[in-house]
Each structure stands twice: as structure tokens, then as C-alpha cells.
Design a protein around this nucleic acid. Sequence first.
RNA 1: GGGGGCGUAGCUCAGUUUGGUUAGAGCACUCGACUGUCACUCGAGAGGUCGCGGGUUCGAGCCCCGUCGCUCCCGCCA
Length: 595
Amino acid sequence: MSAPFATALRTDLCGALRATDVGRTVTLGGWVHRARDLGGIVFLDLRDREGILQVSFGPDWTSAEVIAAAAKVGVESVVLIEGTVVARPDEMKNRDLATGDVELRATRISVVGPASTPALPVARGRGEQLPAEELRLRHRHLDLRRPELQANLILRHRLLQVARRFLSDRGYLELETPILTKPTPEGARDYLVPSRVHPGEFYALPQSPQIYKQLFMMCGFDRYFQVARCFRDEDLRADRQPEFTQIDVEASFVDQEDIIAMAEGLVAALWAEAGVTVTIPFPRMTYAEAMERYGCDRPDLRYELTLRDLTDVMRPLEFGITQGAIAAGGRVRGLVVPGGAAWSRKQVDELEALAKGAGVGGLLRLKCAEGKLDGPLAKFLTADATTAIALADGDLLLAVAGAEHVTSPALDRVRQECARRLGLVDERAREFLWVLDFPMFERDPATGALAAVHHPFTAPNAADRAAYPDEPWRWRAVAYDVVLNGTELGGGSIRTSDPAVQSRMFELLGIGDAEEQERRFGFLLEGLRAGAPPHGGIALGFDRIAMLLSGAPSLRDVIAFPKTTAARSLFEGAPTPVNDADLRELHLRTDVARD
RNA sequence: GGGGGCGUAGCUCAGUUUGGUUAGAGCACUCGACUGUCACUCGAGAGGUCGCGGGUUCGAGCCCCGUCGCUCCCGCCA
């Protein structure tokens, strides 16, 4: 690192010293990572964000008082040390340390920040497990001292700088939007903030800056981006936090191709910063094709194992399950697993349990072993069907009968688990993909009501709207997701810029009343009526990208102060009860008994 | 909201299968020895609400019920 880290108190970062520094007299500040007291000579490993350096205190170059002080200092204490950088003899070099060719012969030490015994170790023994995550979060000030987490956050910083540079160089303006905003009835649950001056009224924290960024386009800023903090009050996962960061982008006078090209460049730049070359453009697939071949709108293309339609093959068979499903308007779909015939009954039952967990009644099996077909289906198969299915020796066919919204998720899970078992997943492979032509709406299976697949501001495909004016469930949206190895990195759409079309969309979503539209989305509609350019954009899930590029197993390892799965901060202790006076001032009362 | 896993010393873990004397180990910590270590080594010591509450039992870290916390998954996340 070439930045001038010299200050009034120190001359260098200890982790930056190399053989070229030999002979220099330096003053370093850092944390005592480990100590080795050999009696006459004392070694301290000094750590800062740049790395670790061995400091030696010996009678030939250090006074007795300084040696005694060094022998007494506790690990994780902050010290200032003055000394001379010396080369280590060959047999004393430490190849595991970037600074291992040199050491500091100390002449002075001052303990500027003595540390109490740490509640959990920062320096870990070889092979020793990390402390429980609960403790790591509770003592985050210590956990964040670990070089691994520091490396994650430093990479995160570099990725953010790359994104800013990339977008700024292309004319995107970094504009900020409110954190205290308006509750939205759509989508996820809002975090609400009570208003003190308006009794009974609330702000919401933004789920995304969606409408604001569209308004920037209507204002004529032309290109916008923001490193946007977003808030959603939903249950958590390893890859989901209640507050998270998006790289949020919007541009005017663009179509889908403009946004896709920009996003590919941005993704390539981010991956390049992490040392990975990414080939652009990315392959593309329609939503319909993804669902048909993979049962999933973000397929993992590192392996094939594609789904097949078996409806026509199965239709003539006198087999109750498939006949019933087909008669009810469903289909029979499945996948052929090479080598799956060798799996035990129990192993296939486990797959069936996965499928059932996704809502199907069961998993049909047909295996081909030693040239013979075996399974409940076998005796119903006609010669034509056998030919059509065309199982090779060792193959296992797994099939599901039913409606598409049932067979797809079930087969998706089965496919993923089969790939895992067969070792088909190449962990080093990177399969980027655009999924295009998402449906505009999905139906609530219970009520039949339409809901936006992406969001209500997405533009419907104009040709679909013209062809099926009264069948909006057939409309595709001008929306796109970018996917890597089965993980959604981000998504966006071209927006509706015609206020009449936007009104119609609200109407289809059950917000038919003009007054209600104005009340809830008036600020958007007003903007559209004031003259809106065609516009669209995308948002990338930045935490997830940082997680992938750092190799971290959890989002919590790329967020400095994350929440637990119960949405708590264990370190600072949030959320927390507040006193009655504060509540009264906000015109709030809780129904929770207090002790 | 539902299901699974985990919870024993400051930390990582054994002990729970089949209930039985005073609950162990490594690291860290304290004291001592040691002049080239780099997970220093060696000796000694201190350190326990077995997550919490209740129950069964002559006896519970271990069995039962409840509860809390962390975690993974489903629902949820436009």
C-alpha cells in the first residue's frame, strides 16, 4: 500500500515493511497479536490492518526496562514501538508472513492502549474452530480485528470504489434519497418510524429508492446511481439481512439493451477488482425457458440435468396418478439422472421428501438397471413410451405430475440435490446468465388476485398488451435478472413512463380507485404527468456480491455490524425498550407488559 | 408462524449412548524457568449457575416438560 500512512505518532504500517526497509529506524503502532517470551529475548507479533510483523526485544539492542515492559504487555494491547528494521537470516525467515523477511529490533515500547484479557481469541491456533457466531457478534469489536474479516471489509470498500468510479465515469450521478420516507402497501413489510410532530403518523424506511430514482429521471438528471441502504422487515436467512445495500442505478432514454450492457460492464469491473476475469456479454434465457428447462427463474447453469416434458409420453398410459393430473390440466415433467439407478430406496425417498416439501404429492421413479426397467410405472409402459423415454443403463427417471406452479419448484429442488450428489457442481465455475421476459403478473393461488412479479412500475411488453388487452396475466414485463450460479445478483426493468399505463397497472393490481391511487402513489403519477422520459434501471445486491467475491459463507461476514436471524444486534443491543416518556412524546403506547 | 441443529471453564471441545464418588482436555489467564522463537517450550496454579425454569428419581450435565439464545431451512422477502 503506497498511501502515506505516516502520522505524528508513527512512521509506517507494520504490515507493510519489507526487505527494502532494512536499516530504517521506524516507529510503529499496532495491536499485540501474540507474544513469545523466551526469557532473555522477547518476541511480539505486531498487527495492524496491513499485516503482522515480528518485533524482537533482545539484550544486545534493547534496554532491560524495555524488555521487561514487552514481556508484561498483554495480547490485543495497543503499543507504539520504535526500533530498527533488520533482515532476518535465511533460517529465521517466516514464509507465512508477508513481512517474514524482516523483523523490527525494538528500542522503545509504550503501551498506549492496554487491553483486558479478550473475551474471545483474535489470534487463532491452527485448526481451531471459530468461536460461536453468537459470541463473535456479541464481541464484534474483537471479531472485527481478525485479518479475515478485515480483508472482507477492505474488499467491500474496493468494490464500492470500483462501482462508483465505473458509474461516475459513464455520467451517472450519485444522488441521495430520503431514509425517512412514505410507507408502501406493496411488497415487504415496512420498518416504521413514528412522527413526533404529527401524532399517529409514520414514516417508513425505504425498501428501495425505486420511486425516487424514477423521479430523478423525470427531473432530467438522466443518469443516477446510489449505494442505497434498503430496509425490509421480513424473516432472515444466511443471505438476507433486514438492512442491506444495493447498487441502485437508473437511466433515461434507454431500453433493456442499454441497461444490460451497462450492468455487464459493472459486474465485470467488480469481478475484475476481485481478480476474476468475466466474459461479457452474458448468455440469455427467457423466463419461460428457464422455468421449462430448470423449473426455476435463476437456474444454476454449472450443470445440465435439464427437465423434460413427459406429458405426451404418459398420456396414453393406464396409470392413475399421471392420468388424473393430465385430466386436471396438469403436465408430467421429470429429469433423467445418469447413475441414479444405483441409489438406494432410502436415497430416492429423501429426494421425494424434498419434492413433497415443495408441494407435490410424490415423486415417480423409473430406473433402468441391467437393461431392465423397474419402478411403479414400469408395468404400465407401452413399447412406444419406453422408446420415447429412452433410459440408458444406470439411468433413473424422476417425474412429477401436476400443475406447473407445483412441478417446477419440486423438480428444481430435486435437480439441485441430484447435481450435488453426483458431484456435478464445479465450485470454480462461474455461469452468468440474464433471465428475460418475466411475466408482468402472478396470481395469488388463493384469491386469484394479480400481483406484480417485479414491481408495479415495470413496463409491460407493449406487443403483449396490444395482443391481449383483456388478459393481463399473459403480458410479459420488460424486466431482467442477472444470475450467477443459481444466485440472483440483481434485477431491474424498463419502467412505465406513461401515466395512463401506470394508472391501468395500479388498477389491475387492485388499486382501481383514482383517489386511492393519488393518495398512495400521487407523487409518482404527478411526476409522470409532468413529462417523463423513457427510463429504466437495475439494482445489484451489493452485500451478496461482496459475500461471493470474498468467499464468505454468510452475509454477516461482509457486514461490519450485522443483525442475527432474530433481527437483533448483539453488540450494541438493538432493538431495545424505550422509556415511557419517549413513547408518550411519540404518541405511542405498547401492549407489552414491562417489568 | 412452522420444522431441524446447537448451547458443558474466557474460547474450542470431550463426557449424554446405558442416570451413580470430587465434571475433564487443549488454548487463553496467573506465577515460575528459559537468549532466536514465530501455535515457542517446560513446571505449577486458578478458573464451572453443565443456557434458564420446572419435573421424574435415593441420586440428573445425562431422562421428561417448558422456556430463552444462536443457527439452517420452509412460509415470508413487489
